[in-house]
């Protein structure tokens, strides 16, 4: 458990930014992962007074506040309408309902854990991360960044552009994944990400006028398998992860084209 001296429930992002300049101060997400650390924190910065716990739909995007919980996203009708079961598939194995009622999207995005299902799912959609101070970066770029004292405010996902599907493999149902992958298609391009390698998901793209052409798509997957870096940890060896990557990509493809078929 971390230790904290002070607590500040901020009333504005400016206040949060100011406090967060100090390295020993930390922004509080849901607390589920943070509590497993042993940090000595000076001031805990709580954004829960800023109304960032809402999912809003505009004409061209979905905006998810950083304090929206994983479970909120899973059960949101707006999310379901726009992305079907994509996020449900991605989040459903994360520990349990109670955990997902606590863990926040902002905390997950900021943490960018190597095993993250959140990063691997968001990264294949047209996702932008809005940081306090006005900067907006793509999920892809944010995933590559070093940890800094930025504050995740909102997650913007473009509507209507991409259909996506998600697969993960876990040694047990509620464990963190041995490997996860997502695949999205916008009518022209395929976007594939393989995560929990045990490193974060990275996007590979392929020009793909005909998504039903599985031969071409599988070549693309084999290329991903050959070029992606995999690692070994307590859950699995890099050889196994490499083996699994192709299995999961093919499965997620099947799921995606089935969905496409349904849409037609």
């Amino acid at each position: 458990m971390f230790k904290a001296q002070n607590y500040a429930k901020v009333t504005s992002l400016t206040e949060a930014l100011e406090l967060n300049k100090k390295r020993t101060n930390k922004v509080l997400g849901g607390g589920c992962w943070m509590k497993m650390g042993k940090k000595n924190i000076n001031t805990l910065i709580d954004l829960s007074g800023l109304g960032l716990d809402k999912i809003t739909e505009t004409d061209d995007e979905i905006i998810i506040g950083s304090l929206v919980t994983l479970r909120d996203i899973e059960t949101s009708p707006v999310i379901e309408k726009n992305f079907g079961n994509f996020f449900k598939d991605a989040f459903t194995h994360i520990v349990g309902v109670q955990f997902r009622n606590c863990a926040t999207i902002g905390g997950s995005v900021f943490s960018r854990f190597g095993f993250s299902d959140i990063v691997t799912s968001l990264i294949v959609l047209d996702t932008k991360i809005e940081l306090a101070g006005g900067e907006t970066v793509s999920m892809e770029e944010y995933s590559e960044r070093d940890y800094d004292n930025d504050i995740v405010v909102n997650i913007h996902i473009k509507k209507g552009g991409r259909k996506a599907a998600y697969e993960s493999f876990r040694n047990t149902q509620t464990d963190i994944p041995v490997l996860n992958c997502s695949l999205a298609y916008d009518g022209k391009k395929l976007y594939a990400a393989v995560g929990a390698r045990p490193m974060r998901g990275k996007v590979s793209t392929m020009d793909c006028p005909d998504v039903e052409n599985s031969e071409e798509v599988f070549k693309f997957f084999e290329k991903i398998q050959a070029e992606t870096e995999f690692g070994t940890n307590t859950r699995a060896s890099k050889e196994y992860r490499k083996h699994l990557s192709l299995v999961l990509l093919k499965r997620v493809y099947k799921k995606l084209v089935c969905k496409e078929g349904d849409a037609k």
Binding site: K9, K35, L44, S48, V97, Q98, C102
Partner: peptide, 15 residues
Amino acid sequence: SKPVLSCSVLAVRAD
């Protein structure tokens, strides 16, 4: 009314 893990929620958040 929502089930949460009280080990992970800070008491200050229950305010």
